[in-house]
Amino acid sequence: MRPERPPLLFAFLAAIGVAFVVLPLVGLLSRAPWETALSDLGTPEAATALRLSFVVSLAATALALVLGVPLAWVYARVQFRGRDVVRALTTLPMILPPVVGGVALLFAFGRRGLFGPALDAIGIHLPFTTAGAVLAATFVAMPFLVLTVEAGLRSMDRRYEDAARTLGAGRWLVFRRVTLPLIAPSVFAGAVLCWARALGEFGATITFAGNLPGTTQTLPLAVYIALETRPEVAIALSLVLLGLALAILVVMRDRYLRAF
């Protein structure tokens, strides 16, 4: 095939588009204190935030898997009235400004929220706790998993499930031994996207869970706080996030596009 040459205007605008995204990254890299980056990351505040971020984002991904895979299954397989509306609602956090999500979480699970007193009664306190940070991250990140897994379920050949049923497998066994392995690539892709989103979560976390080193101060919060007093630490932490994001995109490559 003859390689196509873009119209001049497209080439021009496309080049600006690339510059627009790449230049800030170049800016970040140009300020990076390469010699001290490692020791900056070793400072207690950076190390604490790194550790907490991994705990929170992995816990959020685990929670999203436990709740999101069955949810995706219901969306893909069960016809019920209002399904589209419910799906739209559960997808909302993906587009909602995270701060709004944080406020909404406060009004639901905060001390004076709708369900706060009930949670309080059974000894569950979410705001200002690591559990709250996990909840905030799950809230914004789960839609990525649900959408990806649902797409996987819809595109898989359901006749394999029929075959398994005729071989004597009940519905749960079919799901575990046939459905899940067949949609494993989608579940993996969804989990990685979800994890990436949870790792970068800022607005809902700071609004709902607050900001306390070691408890709720995840990487993005630490970057924001450190930027004013210790910019070199902030940049070093930013580099970690940038590297992880890049690694994720390389791992996902075309899967990301195929999933949607």
Binding site: L106, G110, R111, R112, P127, F128, I206, A209, G210, N211, L212, P213, T215, T216, Q217, Y224, I225
Partner: peptide, 21 residues
């Protein structure tokens, strides 16, 4: 021991007025 270190003083005020703190 604070449960949170808010990004500015207005955020502190909000957490109190929302009843979370």
């Amino acid at each position: 021991k604070p449960v949170s270190q808010e990004v500015d003083v207005r955020a502190v005020l909000n957490k109190v007025s929302l009843g979370e703190a």
